[in-house]
Design a protein around this nucleic acid. Structure first.
Length: 224
DNA sequence: GCGTGATCATTG
DNA sequence: CAATGATCACGC
């Protein structure tokens, strides 16, 4: 995709997002001269990549916030017509080989979620992809309550990982943050440690925000 | 293979 | 019908 130049300031970013509220994915794709996929079965990440290109977010595949200059992470959020999140939100892969413990504020989760540009998209599956409409994007900063919630979940999950119990972690752990498979398929393996601290091969996992958490963010923002 | 962007689709 | 586990594409 053809990328726009990155915004230099928060104000410039705010101005850009004010202009896309109410537009459809087809509108944005048309401006960028890109073809809209029939459905997202084959190109699941397409909405996110479209918005990245349109808004000039380009951290590439670096484990860094999308707008590096501004320290802002871009997240599209599929919602239904009532404004309720339809999917969990992927944040980052989990470090299964973390030997020396890192602190919450050093974590990629904190760095990415500290400041987020949320772009809600009305994305019920019966709406054709090009007609899916961008609701009201907004800049959001993690507050103390969000932080303690996420920090608690993160510390619990990281402790399980550190002690080699990552194989016993399911999506059921965590109130706001959960750990789920993150791979091309279930046969993929990556380096990890077992309970004895010996290196083993294990399925890669990623951190995801539950819909209950993103729903609260939307509720606070829009007083839904 | 890993990390980016996520949604799909089966199941309880 | 929500949620968990599985999956798809791309850059390097």
């Amino acid at each position: 995709m053809n990328f726009s130049p990155p915004p230099a300031t928060i104000e410039e970013l705010q101005h850009r997002i004010d202009l896309i509220a109410g537009l459809t994915l087809g509108d944005l794709a048309g401006e960028l001269n890109v073809v809209v996929p029939e459905n997202l079965q084959v190109e699941k990440g397409w909405p996110g990549q479209l918005l990245e290109a349109y808004l000039g977010a380009s951290a590439g595949n670096l484990p860094e916030p999308d707008f590096q200059l501004l320290g802002v992470e871009l997240k599209t959020l599929p919602i239904n017509r009532d404004g309720k999140p339809l999917e969990t939100t992927f944040v980052s892969v989990a470090p299964l080989t973390q030997s020396s413990p890192i602190t919450w504020r050093e974590s990629s989760i904190y760095k990415k979620l500290r400041h987020v540009l949320w772009v809600p998209i009305i994305a019920e599956r019966d709406i054709p992809v090009p007609l899916r409409q961008i609701a009201t994007p907004f800049l959001w900063q993690m507050d103390a309550q969000h932080e303690s919630l996420l920090k608690n979940d993160w510390e619990e999950l990281m402790e399980l990982i550190t002690f080699g119990h990552h194989d016993k972690i399911s999506a059921l752990h965590g109130e706001a943050l959960q750990l789920r498979p993150k791979a091309a398929d279930s046969s993929v393996r990556t380096q990890a440690f077992n309970q004895q601290g010996q290196p083993i091969q294990a399925p890669p996992k990623g951190f995801y925000l539950r819909t209950s958490f993103t729903k609260q963010i939307l509720t606070k923002q829009f007083q839904l």
